[in-house]
Design a binder for these strands. Structure first.
Lengths: 147, 147
DNA sequence: CCTGAAATCATTGGCGG
DNA sequence: CCGCCAATGATTTCAGG
C-alpha cells in the first residue's frame, strides 16, 4: 500500500467509472501497471465492489429512515433471513448496545413506513428516525501508506 | 423510467465498472443508446455517482462505529463545519428525534475512537455503538417503472 | 434508436530494471 | 517482483439516417 495505491483508491472512490488509461494518467503509471494494481487490490479485499449511487427519492422512495431493532436473541437468525426478503431495507448493521440491529430503509410513503415497522415489531422493539438530510454523503478513510 | 432504465440501474448498482458495450448486451440496446440513457439518468439526478467500495479494515481502520450526537441547536452549523474536517467520519445523517445526527465512523483503534468521542462531546451528548457485522451490505430500492 | 467509421482504450506478451 | 512498451481486439464516440 504505497502512494500509487492510495491515489488509485482515491480516484476510484471518487469516480469508479474512469478508464484505466485515465487512471494511469492521474497516478503517473502505465495503463497495464494500474490495471495490475487494481486487480491486486480487488483480490486482497481492499476494493470490494463498484456501485452506482442511486438517489432513492428519484425512483419513488422519498422517505428514508433509520430503524433500531432490539431483537430477542433466539430470533436473531430468523430475523436476518427475513431482512433479506424486505426490499425496503437498504443496509443493515449489527451493533453493540441494546438495539442490536440498525436498519437503513427507504419507502414510498408514511403508510409504507408504518407497515414496515409493524412487520419488524414481530421480532423486537423498534425505534425509528426519519432521515432529514445527508450532509456528508460518502467518504473514504484516509489511506495510511505502509511499506 | 422504463424497463431499460431499470435494468441499467440494477446493472450499474451491481457493478459500476462494466462497459457500455456489456451493458448494451444485457439490456438489448445498442451501446450508444445505453450511453445516452445513462447520461440522462445522471443529469436527472437518479445516478449521483459511481464509487469503489473500500474495506476500511484493510486500510488500517478495523473499528467501525455509529455515533448518535445530540447537538444543541445553536451549535448545529458549527458542528456541520467541524464534521467536514474529521476524516474518521464516513457518513452523516441528520435525523428526527432527540439525537439529531447519526455519524458512521471508522478508526484505527479504541483510543482513537475515544479521542473522537471526546472531540464530539464538545458539541453535545453522544451515544456510541460498535459495528459488529454488516449482514446486508448494500442494496438498491426496487425500481418502479413509470410511463 | 440504429448503423458504421475513426479515435480511444483494454489486454496480452515480451523486455528491462 | 514490478513496470514499461508494443500490438491486437474491444470499446467509445460521433455522424448520418
Amino acid at each position: 500500500m504505497d502512494k500509487f495505491d492510495k491515489k488509485i483508491l482515491t480516484a476510484l472512490h471518487e469516480n469508479a467509472r474512469i478508464s484505466y488509461a485515465e487512471l494511469a494518467r492521474r497516478v503517473n503509471l502505465s495503463a497495464p501497471a494500474v490495471a495490475d494494481r487494481v486487480e491486486k487490490l480487488e483480490h486482497a479485499g481492499v476494493i470490494t465492489g463498484y456501485h452506482a449511487r442511486i438517489n432513492p427519492a428519484k425512483i419513488g422512495y422519498p422517505i428514508q429512515g433509520l430503524i433500531e431493532l432490539t431483537v430477542k436473541h433466539q430470533d436473531y437468525y430468523i430475523v436476518m433471513e427475513q431482512l433479506g426478503t424486505m426490499p425496503e431495507i437498504l443496509e443493515c448493521f449489527s451493533v453493540t448496545g441494546t438495539s442490536g440491529l440498525l436498519l437503513k430503509v427507504a419507502v414510498h410513503s408514511m403508510p409504507d413506513l408504518q407497515a414496515l415497522i409493524a412487520r419488524l415489531m414481530q421480532y423486537g422493539d423498534t425505534k425509528t428516525s426519519i432521515v432529514i438530510d445527508v450532509p456528508v454523503p460518502l467518504r473514504m478513510p484516509e489511506v495510511v501508506e505502509t511499506e
